[in-house]
Design a protein around this nucleic acid. Structure first.
Lengths: 347, 347
DNA sequence: CTGAAAGCGCTTACAG
DNA sequence: CTGAAAGCGCTTACAG
């Protein structure tokens, strides 16, 4: 029952207990302790109990570096932003996603390493880091098509799960996405069903899945309702607030008779609101406005925005689940999650 | 000149080159390679050159796990949020800080591990993780006083740098902060100098440094101008948009004659704008509104907010600099950074 | 300036 | 079910 003497006296900082200390305390070999750590298979109940007691008593925590060295796994996961940082850090969706992924990984006791690769130099560093095996997998946030890092990740044979369908990438890549097209259809139907006739749209960039799919949904519903497609009712934004404002100015000039606006993101919809107000149009009186995302911006907007909710909690959970499965050896797979119409005061 | 054969053939994944491979390629010992990695001291120019060439040729990247095992350093830094996640992830300041710290650490090739400790269970896990030495230091974001994790971190003898002065903590703790008091003074002076007479304030929580200091600045300027302090012109918020709205409602009811409002954060100022508009007051016609932070919210607000800019880029740079210095053995130190008045349309 | 060798704290066949 | 032993890829005194 003697306290194990602190090993070594080099300096004031006492080293944390190792598997060796636990083994001594429990009266077993280090191999047995390790087996307990791995799940307790092939360990007698008595040994298991003794080891667990020793772990508790000593406050033992595994040394991940040592484990990594032998397992050739880092035990961590990277959260990688591949666009210029500004964009993403401004976008509330990104923050929501980061929060969800951090929480989901914490449940598995896996640290999240935050990395950005917005320019060439960053990309090189990130690739080096990841190719060296410093993360076991990558949660990828990259909306624009043709990002070269995808190929590099693939070549490093690193498990990757993308948020949103990666455009312009050949080969199988796991991803999780909301059902952009269905969401857009629901919104446009809602606009039409509440009596609007000239429904315009501000799209996202056409090299992003949200940009393409939400526009496709818009067109499909028009066809459904027998309304001819009119490209003077369509303007493209880049998901920023400002671009929503500019695009709306443009639409208003081109088609002053529009009475509804489907905007492909809440942030852009906020910009649209500004442009509409400046032009003297009331919302929803003169123009109904529907957003997309159900981000905090939707609630903060005046009036609060009718929008399409993306299930961010589930998206992050699924991303983590798919990534861990892939790390464990599963094939890459895809999950599409349903969206939901949230009606507020702007329609 | 023969290509080094890939060692082992277990599976299709070829192991990355090790220091051993580099040594063989360069015709030196592993010790010499390691010395080159450590900065090239005590290495002949010829050997240095040969090793560097071999590293380039093989694409060698150091194995951090192996290095950690011997150096007893993780080589990474934790970014720790100790408040309920929702709050921080909503706050644009937090995101700005996270972005800055990620970038500053990347310059040193140090990965940032994102951790949250919003509840008891999370705190326990984080403490275990950190106490086990899985990060060399902590960038701490915790505004409220009396957070127990501070003591735990201290006990683990982990270098810590806090964002903002930690209230209710005895003992030396490094921190970086904007000059809250001076910033507040500058804003209140600006309000007074532009002709306002009844200046109210919405403060931050009084157990946060920003809450306390910005209120102190407000009072000091009042004294400077010989204006008696009137507590019916003071209401407390919690930095959320909603609380700014509620506090402003309250002030308006209590002191309908107020003609200026100093709000201790931009997010709360947005709420104040909403309340003011609802009450039929124009901004800046009837009431001038000054915010604090110069966050994205300030620009997005209608009208765009006059505010006090916190130098987030420098704050994050300094936090990283102080932390790395502390990890290297320096004593904890403190940096206070100047703020700047940004005049827009709300005053 | 350089190499041989010990050791960091784990995991994992391999015998028993 | 268990222990002894090898080995993961580095760094760092220690001799020379």
């Amino acid at each position: 029952m003697t306290e194990p003497a602190p090993r070594g006296r080099t300096g004031k900082t006492r080293r944390p207990p190792t598997i060796h200390d636990v083994a001594a305390e429990a009266g077993v070999s280090r191999g047995t302790v390790s087996r307990v750590l791995q799940g307790g298979h092939n360990v007698s109940p008595a040994a298991l109990e003794a080891v667990n007691a020793a772990i508790r008593k000593l406050g033992y925590v595994v040394n991940r570096a040592a484990r990594s060295l032998v397992t050739q796994r880092s035990g961590s996961v990277a959260f990688l932003l591949t666009e210029p940082q500004e964009r993403f850090f401004e976008d509330p969706n990104f923050v929501t996603l980061l929060r969800g992924c951090t929480a989901a990984l914490a449940d598995h006791d896996i640290p999240l390493i935050l990395m950005t690769a917005g320019n060439e130099a960053e990309r090189r560093r990130v690739t080096r880091y990841l190719a060296a095996g410093h993360a076991d997998g990558v949660l990828l946030v990259s909306s624009h098509a043709g990002n070269p890092i995808l190929a590099e990740l693939r070549q490093a044979e690193l498990p990757v799960v993308s948020c949103g369908k990666p455009l312009g990438h050949r080969g199988r890549l796991a991803y999780v996405a909301a059902d952009d097209r269905e969401g857009a259809k629901e919104m446009v139907r809602h606009l039409l069903d509440t009596g609007r006739r000239r429904v315009a749209t501000v799209t996202g960039p056409q090299d992003t899945p949200g940009g393409v799919e939400r526009l496709a949904g818009y067109r499909e519903v028009l066809a459904e309702y027998g309304i001819p497609y009119d490209d003077r009712l369509v303007a493209e934004g880049d998901y920023s607030r400002t671009s929503g404002e500019t695009a709306t100015d443009h639409l208003l000039a081109q088609s002053p008779d529009l009475d509804a606006l489907f905007v492909a993101s809440d942030l852009m919809a906020e910009g649209a609101l500004t442009a509409l107000t400046r032009a003297g149009r009331t919302v929803p009186g003169d123009v109904a406005v529907g957003g997309f995302d159900d981000s905090p911006a939707a609630l903060a907007a005046r009036p609060p925005l009718t929008t399409i909710r993306q299930p961010w909690d589930r998206i992050s959970e699924e991303m983590v689940r798919l990534l861990l499965a892939q790390i464990a050896g599963d094939d890459p797979s895809t999950v599409i999650l349903p969206t939901e119409l949230v009606v507020r005061d702007s329609t």
